[in-house]
Design a protein around this nucleic acid. Structure first.
Lengths: 202, 202
DNA sequence: GTCTATAACTCGATAGAC
DNA sequence: GTCTATCGAGTTATAGAC
């Protein structure tokens, strides 16, 4: 059994994740990544051939941890309130664990939408129509207030992910420090579902 | 009176806005911008000296239209519900008018937070503490449900801006076409404040 | 596997003619 | 103001020794 944690390959991936996250794919240089990994440029190419391939590996490795968890939370057969809890928890925990992923995704999704989305989900999208249908059913049955399913889904995703995209804005602009930010995000696992349910319950 | 609309300078700014928006500052090349503007590379430098200066001009010109409107909506002396309406409207109308600005901001704010935020607001931040205090006052007076002001502010900003960041995701992933998306966003000018107020009212 | 050295290339920027 | 041509810096990528 090999200790992957200390392997050169892992060290590179870890350094690349850092640099790419901060500077983006184009802003990062192989030199920086090599420096941070404490090795040399040629070795990056030895392991990953090109910058593009290194980026893809880093990126999709991160993102793909994520997408089955979300797909699962959406596909589960539980009542709407419980599902909202599960989805919010999945999103926020993921983002807390990989705070760079959302920034990654926004950047790339706006460059090459079709290509990127297909790579992201491998043609196997989360079943948003199912969720929309479930919401519509509750509305029609008069169990929650009237709301367009798409609007509710957007609201939920927005509140879970956006704060991670704008973290620097909140930290610098609103003067809250990093630990406070972390705590606010942890609270949001409960607060966001509560906020949503308070809004839609009859 | 000069017709700025057809001037070379305007053509360049417009092309640059497009390219920078999609590819980001680093991903864009002067060649692409020149091609899109139907002129040649040297002319870009003639008008704007450097890529950095061109970027700054494009970016801050767009963003600065925005920040006084927001600052104003936050500073106004109106009751909380009205203020929530005004802020949401300001954000969403701005984003509808300049759909690239949010993508810009997220990209750049995560590269050089301090520098960028200072350039963005010129040291003159929107008065979020004021808004937070107003929320706290309503909570303490028992006029709205208990909620941490920061959480409420995050919720509001999130729901206004996030959909524009993830537009390709919604368009491709949720299968809604561009006109439908546009309409959903227009509806959100009323829907988001409604959603928020439904959640916090007693 | 890891290194040094360097080739090959991209891209921002400038010179200079018109 | 606008163009063509080219320079030079910085980067990705490779060759080849160890």
């Amino acid at each position: 059994m090999v200790n992957k944690t200390n392997s050169t390959e892992f060290t590179i991936l870890s350094a690349a994740k850092n640099i790419f996250s901060i500077k983006g794919k184009d802003g990062a240089t192989m030199q920086e990544i090599a420096d941070q990994a404490g090795i040399n440029k040629a070795l990056l190419h030895y392991y990953f051939r090109t910058k593009d391939l290194l980026f893809e590996q880093v990126f999709f490795e991160e993102v793909k941890k994520f997408s089955p968890i979300l797909k699962n939370a959406i596909a589960q057969e539980v009542d709407l309130y419980q599902k909202i809890h599960n989805i919010c928890e999945a999103y926020i925990l993921m983002a807390l664990d990989n705070p760079f992923v959302p920034v990654f995704v926004v950047g790339e999704i706006n460059k090459q939408p079709d290509l990127f989305i297909h790579k992201l989900f491998d043609g196997d999208f989360p079943d948003f129509p199912l969720l929309a249908a479930q919401i519509k059913k509750e509305v029609d049955a008069g169990k929650i207030k009237p709301i367009q399913p798409h609007q509710l889904i957007m609201n939920m995703m927005s509140m879970c992910i956006f704060p991670f995209l704008m973290k620097p804005m909140f930290v610098v602009g609103m003067g809250i420090d990093k630990e406070v930010f972390q705590n606010l995000m942890l609270q949001r696992i409960k607060e966001v579902p509560k906020f949503i349910i308070d809004s839609i319950k009859i």
